[in-house]
């Protein structure tokens, strides 16, 4: 089933801080949208608004034409929209398998039995390359492993539209190449649509079908990855002239 999420004219203010000021974008099944912009430009905030973690100050979010802005996060998950946390939030006292099982039982799959959810969790952990750590307590994971666990949990919810906040950060060149390949494979298999926030340009370039660039909460460019990285405004605000030398 093909699904469409539309965020239009989203504003989010925190007191005097205008974190997001009128951004619109559309996310569809099987498409990957990259979202880039300088630090503090409002990317995570926009994701939080879409995922129901924050209420928008202004603007609307619809899923398949239905207004959903202001819905709490757990209802958005039921609807099939789930998000990873930029700073991972694993359930520290639980094993990786149990972490994933929670998502499995409370996400849109509504798997009712712990035993089968735990069993299925293994498969999902294998998908993201964490199978070796399946029975390790989440507190023993490194930061990168925790990011993978975030991704595994979102997959386990069964969401058809996923919002990913910097899941490729902190990987070595080899690991990054593997992670991108792995992500592309999983995405093809599962067919979800993804809104990907990322500073690792290599991942953005390879994976995105379309890229949106924001600065200070406003959209400054959008288009194909190639168009966007050649846009002088984007180079000025975000990439920097030397960028291609240091952060491929």
């Amino acid at each position: 089933m093909s699904r469409t999420l539309e965020a239009s004219e989203i504003h989010k203010y925190f007191g005097g801080v205008k974190a997001v000021q009128g951004v619109s974008l559309t996310l569809e099944t099987a498409r990957i949208i990259g979202l880039i912009g300088p630090n503090g430009s409002g990317k995570s905030t926009l994701l939080n608004v879409i995922a129901g973690i924050e209420k928008p100050t202004k603007g609307t979010v619809t899923v398949d034409g239905r207004r959903v802005d202001g819905w709490p996060a757990h209802r958005m998950v039921e609807l099939g929209v789930a998000k990873t946390h930029q700073i991972p939030k694993p359930f520290l006292g639980m094993t990786c398998r149990e972490n994933v099982a929670v998502a499995m039982m409370y996400g849109s799959r509504r798997e009712g039995e712990p035993a089968s959810a735990l069993e299925e969790s293994r498969r999902i952990l294998a998908m993201v390359g964490l199978d070796r750590r399946a029975d390790a307590p989440a507190s023993n994971l490194t930061v990168q492993e925790r990011k993978r666990l975030e991704f595994a949990r979102v997959l386990a919810t069964g969401a058809g539209l996923v919002l990913l906040d910097e899941i490729f950060a902190g990987l070595s060149p080899d690991e990054l190449r593997d992670a991108i390949a792995l992500f592309a494979r999983v995405q093809k298999e599962q067919g979800f649509g993804a809104l990907v926030v990322e500073h690792v340009m290599r991942a953005v370039m390879i994976l995105s079908d379309f890229v949106v660039v924001i600065e200070e909460g406003r959209k400054i460019a959008e288009g194909s990855p190639k168009e966007v990285v050649e846009d002088p405004a984007v180079i000025e605000a975000y990439l920097g002239s030397e960028a291609t030398n240091v952060t491929p």
Binding site: A51, I53, K89, V154
Partner: peptide, 23 residues
């Protein structure tokens, strides 16, 4: 049961629990 997992998730990190569908 299933509830137990949701409860442990809340005890560990309530925000994370919510964003995985736990009411």
């Amino acid at each position: 049961g299933r509830l137990g997992y949701g409860i442990r998730a809340i005890k560990s990190d309530e925000d994370a629990a919510k964003s995985l569908g736990v009411n």
